[in-house]
């Protein structure tokens, strides 16, 4: 009875300790991320005051704005103030849109999220089996075909593929819709709930809007999917080739497994950890906002937002966007760490 209680207390304190180290590592990463982005933004030659007052402002107005922005204080104080505001959800106001940066990000991020998620799902569904088949049929025609398709995937410039895709599939054939997220006639009909048009339209049962959003989404998503599937398939192939040469594959076949049975049931579960890393990184880089794709398709996403902010010295917006991307990376890494332990028993702590 007493032993049992001690055991339970130990388990509880152990869990508490793990949660503590988890949260502190999270906080440390966040601190490092904000410190570095803040420093870089202050070290650039861009003058945030000029961006607000313009170059025709008087010295008096300039100095007043300079002091208002807190730029006369030491860097560490500025950072402290920035961090305090950030934690209360205040990322400052964008010069370009005159709106809080947070509001802007909430507006643009779902567009990128929608595009990236559809792209990564397609990339995984095609890229992973493709890589497995190429590895299992290494040197045969299946392997050659998949490798050539992948080679095109990471050699063709994305904007070129986007333009050709628009020209052929939208301009000539009319199979898909053109640029933007919706036809103009459908704009602002659906209430924004998640910001993800497919979901918002489905929630309201507006199926014609759903179809329209989908026909706008499918081409840029396919193009991004092509690039990530090329990478995913290539990495899957090399992970699988490595595993297929292992002794336990021969052992499985001695037990009476077919070749493909050994490939899928034995080798494939063993590539999950590196594969999750690759998929996580691809997804994270898609969530940064694919600037070129978003530009070609006039897709109002994060990539476009940050690029425009950069060109206009809108430092609050740049900083806010960078912090958001950093947090996306941290989030995806955490999720990957969690998945590793599910798929590989060797990584579970006792």
């Amino acid at each position: 009875m007493v032993d049992d209680q001690i055991g339970r207390t130990n388990a509880a304190s152990h869990a508490l300790k793990r949660a503590g180290s988890f949260i502190s590592s999270l906080a440390l990463t966040f601190l490092g991320l904000t410190a570095i982005t803040f420093l870089i933004s202050r070290m650039t030659k861009i003058d945030p005051v000029l961006a607000i007052v313009g170059d025709k402002a008087s010295k008096e107005v300039y100095d007043k704005t300079y002091a208002m922005l807190g730029l006369d204080k030491p860097l560490i104080v500025q950072y402290g103030g920035y961090l305090r505001k950030l934690l209360s959800g205040d990322m400052g106001t964008s010069v370009l849109t005159s709106q809080p940066v947070l509001t802007d990000l909430i507006h643009v991020f779902p567009a990128t999220f929608e595009l990236a998620t559809v792209a990564i799902v397609m990339g995984v569904l095609i890229g992973v089996p493709g890589g497995v088949i190429a590895a299992a049929r290494k040197g045969h025609w299946q392997d050659q075909v998949i490798r050539v398709v992948c080679l095109f995937g990471y050699s063709i410039p994305v904007f070129w593929l986007g333009l050709v895709g628009l020209f052929v599939l939208y301009g000539k054939l009319g199979w898909v819709s053109g640029t933007g997220r919706l036809d103009i006639g459908y704009d602002d009909i659906v209430t924004t709930r998640s910001g993800i048009l497919l979901i918002d339209a489905a929630l309201e049962g507006q199926w014609d809007i759903f179809r329209n959003a989908f026909s706008h989404l499918i081409l840029p998503a396919s193009i991004l999917a092509y690039f990530s599937l090329a990478y995913i398939a290539r990495m899957t192939r090399s992970f699988m080739i490595d595993q297929l040469s292992q002794e336990y594959i021969i052992a499985a076949r001695i037990k009476g497994r077919s070749y493909w049975g050994a490939v899928w049931k034995h080798a494939f579960p063993n590539i999950m950890v590196p594969l999750i890393t690759v998929i996580g990184l691809s997804y994270a880089s898609l969530l940064e906002g694919a600037v070129l794709t978003e530009t070609v398709f006039a897709w109002p996403g994060l990539g476009q937002y940050i690029t425009r902010a950069l060109f206009n010295s809108d430092m609050n917006a740049v900083l806010g966007g960078t912090v958001l991307i950093g947090m996306v990376f941290i989030g995806i890494n955490l999720f990957c760490d969690f998945l590793y332990k599910i798929f590989d028993p060797r990584l579970r702590s006792a």
Partner: peptide, 26 residues
């Protein structure tokens, strides 16, 4: 290949050298 699968495991088998590599780790 299909004929081999009737034999392997059921009627002939092999014990390999090192269990560290010949057992599936996951």
């Amino acid at each position: 290949e299909a004929d081999w699968q009737l034999l392997r495991g059921r009627r002939m088998t092999m014990v390999m050298q090192d269990p560290k590599y010949s057992l599936n780790p996951v």
